[in-house]
Amino acid sequence: MGLNAQKRLRSTISYCILILWSFILLFPMYWVGITSFKNAIDMSIKATYLPFVDFQPGLHAWRYLFVDRLTWFLDPFMNSVIVAFVSSTIALIIGSSAGYALARFDYGGRNNSIVLGFMSQRMFPGALFILAFLVMFRELGLLDTRLSLIIVYSSGAIPFIVWVMRDFFEGLPVEIEESAMIDGANRLGVLFRIAMPLAAPGLVAVFVLSLIGAWNEYLVALTLTFREAITIPLFMTMQVSQTGYTEWWNMSAISLVSVIPVVAAGMALEKYITGGLTFGALKG
């Protein structure tokens, strides 16, 4: 077999593997998609796979969600939006300032150790935190408030923002910052007017990742909130425990509404997100 034929064979096998795995990833999402257009009858006798062939799609689940029960869905949706955006913004400001500082200043030769200290957060089990947080926020009278989730989620996102942004700032040339400072700018000005704009791709990536983390979080939300401040994941599971049986078409529509924005944002920013996701193992 010639080298070229060998190469062609290898790339054919590669494409087969990639297409197979892509299909495995697609199938569950496809299933949620079609289920949101199904009627009860399409899910009670046998599995139905293809709209118009196996079953007649209808919009009733979407009408139910956006017309009949919009107000009922809107509260947890807004809770999720507010908690995710506020916590990510706080984490971004605090975390990227620290990342910048660790890239540009010397802390007695212990910069790497400080970063590792932040990184050690990864090994602490969430189970340990929920017990302490439950008591802490109960004593503070903050149970079932968005504030409690904002506090927990921003602190959860800071370590990885510090790590990613420190790497990012280290990759930026210091000369621009130096000349600005010689011209009389102070560090705050340098950070916000020069370094941050240059680091915009990194900032967007860590912001979106912490947004997704907060948007999808379940365990802490389940522990700290129960009525007023519940987020979408909690809202979804509560629907079933209340009604006792599951209206899968409605649940599927809700899932899609909660999943599509973050998946779209993540995939649109693929180039930046991959670097942030693999943090802790790769440089930049």
Binding site: L18, L25, Y218
Partner: peptide, 20 residues
């Protein structure tokens, strides 16, 4: 492919496990 493979990492575990 790389972009598509990011998808499951963005989906809430609750949606994956509970609904799907």
């Amino acid at each position: 492919f790389r972009t598509w493979f990011l998808m499951p990492l963005m989906v809430s575990p609750v949606v994956v496990s509970f609904i799907v």
